[in-house]
Write a protein that binds this DNA or RNA. Structure first.
Lengths: 148, 148
DNA sequence: ACTTGATAGATGTACTGTACAACTACTTTT
DNA sequence: AAAAGTAGTTGTACAGTACATCTATCAAGT
């Protein structure tokens, strides 16, 4: 037991810190997003961003990708449509399917929110060295991918 | 503008990745906690853990520390008391104040949830080198502290 | 000592995000 | 044509949260 006990303890401590800090971040994220861009909640922002990235997809795809219930997505999308950010295009080959697309206005609102978010991250990370940023980005990616 | 354009682009890309991955994590955190320990939500867990760490504090302290409205904390604490996890001790010197303490049962429930959480983090981070863990922990701490 | 202001907390109300179950409308399989 | 599967909506319920308002208590200033 001797010799490795110290190393194991450090490992333990590092993991505890990661746990604590990630949890703290998660707790604040929604409220922070709401303060930053009140017109677009964190969830709405995420869904719109996915629509932009994917160039349009189905509600079911959003639900699968974000592990949300389809009813949740259905209501979110309905709200986004009501707000004029999203439009539905029926698939002529399969009438069950609606492809969701950003509207012009949705693109603009998304762009503004993305700008503000991005600005906030830049402000926070402004003093970081490039190599640190890249390592941090790589660690986060690895951590999330480790989920399985 | 030449010469630094590539470096600026990498910086940009790293920040974008950090933003994306942190957001993805935040989105999943609550649901993941609920799956992991259904008897204790992420918020309840956090509050109980704070009570344990601090050795008892006031509802106002919790609100200040977690940037929550006092009404929110009041209801959370009421629920935790109803569940038997927390007890209130009136301060004899100031009758406005109630010091919150974990009950025996609260300690046990917290310990079980903390174990399960800790286990999940260990599973995810099991393949990481000690040096990587420490850098990741340090980056997260720095990122959160940068909030101001 | 009495008023005024501050603090701790509880309660009324409302909104968002979320899930589950049940439903409709289509499509695919058999 | 019947059965089974898929896409999406709707009914219902609950957690978490905030803001405004209320009560009880304490502290300070006159």
């Amino acid at each position: 037991m001797s010799g490795t006990a110290g190393a194991a303890g450090e490992r333990e401590a590092a993991i505890a810190t990661i746990q604590r800090e990630l949890t703290a971040f998660a707790r604040r994220a929604r409220a922070a997003a709401a303060r930053m861009h009140p017109e677009l909640s964190l969830v709405s922002f995420t869904l719109l961003a996915h629509l932009e990235d994917s160039g349009g997809c189905r509600a079911t795809d959003l639900a699968a990708h974000y592990l949300l219930d389809k009813s949740t997505v259905s209501r979110q999308v309905a709200a986004l449509e009501r707000a004029g950010h999203v439009e539905r295009r029926s698939d002529p080959d399969d009438h069950r399917i609606q492809l969701l697309h950003l509207t012009e206005q949705g693109e603009q609102v998304l762009a503004r929110a993305a700008d503000r978010r991005s600005q906030a991250f830049h402000d926070r990370l402004g003093a970081w060295e490039p190599a640190e940023l890249e390592r941090f980005a790589a660690y986060l990616t690895r951590y999330n991918d480790e989920a399985g």
